[in-house]
């Protein structure tokens, strides 16, 4: 059952990323990406991380992608943008991407196989993660909140129309 779900989600993820690559319309690309992120959320759930699955869907597929779509709508480009015209760039990128793929696969295969120790585990409950966040990772958590505020203010300052513009 789980393996079926895995292949389903994996197919959705890879398929929608391919769709995103092929699509000429930015908005379509963004929507494809929402699907990809959502199926990744499903995969997170399969990995026994329900909280991360929810976070992935709410923040990534929800908030961040909405942001993208907003910007796409603000930058009105009319017709879509075709793919890269310089073929050698794509060829080089694909070539090196495949090498990288081979390298990583080789690296993972070469690594000692670790048995799935937690296969029987039901997964990590959000309670546990919440406890970790507010005990062991309290300071990183607080610092992250400062980072978000800084990013927020930074974005506002960047976008603000200056006088005389």
């Amino acid at each position: 059952m789980a393996i079926l779900l895995f292949f389903l989600f994996a197919a959705f993820a890879v398929g929608s990323v391919l769709g995103m690559i092929i699509s000429r319309n930015q908005a379509y690309s963004a929507l494809f990406l929402v699907v990809a992120f959502a199926s990744l959320g499903g995969l997170f759930g399969l990995l026994g991380a329900p909280f991360m699955a929810v976070v992935q869907i709410i923040i990534y597929a929800g908030a961040i992608m909405v942001l993208f779509i907003f910007v796409i709508m603000m930058i009105h480009l009319g017709e879509g943008i075709s793919a890269e015209k310089k073929k050698w760039t794509i060829a080089a990128a694909v070539f090196m991407g495949i090498i990288l793929l081979a390298e990583i696969v080789f690296a993972v295969k070469g690594a000692p196989a670790v048995p799935m120790a937690g296969q029987e585990m039901a997964g990590t409950s959000p309670t546990e993660i919440g406890r970790l966040l507010f005990t062991k990772y309290l300071y990183p958590f607080e610092i992250t909140s400062i980072l978000i505020i800084a990013a927020l203010v930074g974005a506002v300052v960047l976008i603000k129309k200056r006088e005389g513009e």
Binding site: T89, M96, I99, L100, I104
Partner: peptide
């Protein structure tokens, strides 16, 4: 930016290759 990224990618490939 793409040219830089390409060089970056090349660097990553070589780095990983050397590592492996």
């Amino acid at each position: 930016v793409k040219d830089y990224a390409l060089v970056f990618l090349l660097g990553a490939v070589i780095f990983l290759g050397v590592l492996l």
